[in-house]
Amino acid sequence: MEFLIELLISAMIVVGGVFALVGSFGLSKLPDLMARLHAPTKATTLGIGGMLIASILYFAFIERTLSVHELLITIFLFLVAPVTAYLVAKTHLHKNRDRQDTAQFQLPPPAGTHKAGWATFNKSEKQSRTEIR
């Protein structure tokens, strides 16, 4: 039993390390920022998640103390990763808004028939109304 738990903890640490490494490798290898964004948000977050789970198991079964801080860190990182990715993508689009004629920055139009733009470039009706006021 002891051996199985040690094996599980070691496997979690190794898998976490590999995923963190793959995430950073993607960050340094992929060609442009939007593609690079995929690697840290997914691979690195899951890598850290695996290590934190290993840490919970280690302290629960080997040190015999219950520690729930790791769970808080895991939940926090998983909730925060999409927000970071969204903000970075938004900043990237905003900075390159003058280069929309190049293929890399060409955005598809929003769905629907009537006129609407993307929130980064166009103000919504509500916003422009409050500004006039």
């Binding site: 640490i13 976490g16 390390g17 963190a20 995430g23 950073s24 960050l27 920022l33 690079r36 964004l37 840290p40 690195t44 977050t45 890598g47 850290i48 290590m51 934190l52 290993a54 840490s55 280690y58 302290f59 080997i62 040190e63 103390t65 520690s67 801080h69 790791e70 860190i73 990182l77 970071t84 970075v88 900043t91 990237h92 900075k95």
Partner: peptide, 28 residues
């Protein structure tokens, strides 16, 4: 923006180092 993304990933990797060091030392 690339540098911001790199910095963010660096922070997350540092957290992983903290966790690993905790397991290695056996202290929480």
């Amino acid at each position: 923006i690339n540098r911001i993304l790199a910095l963010d990933t660096l922070t997350i990797n540092t957290i992983a180092l903290f966790i690993l060091f905790g397991i290695w030392q056996g202290s929480s």
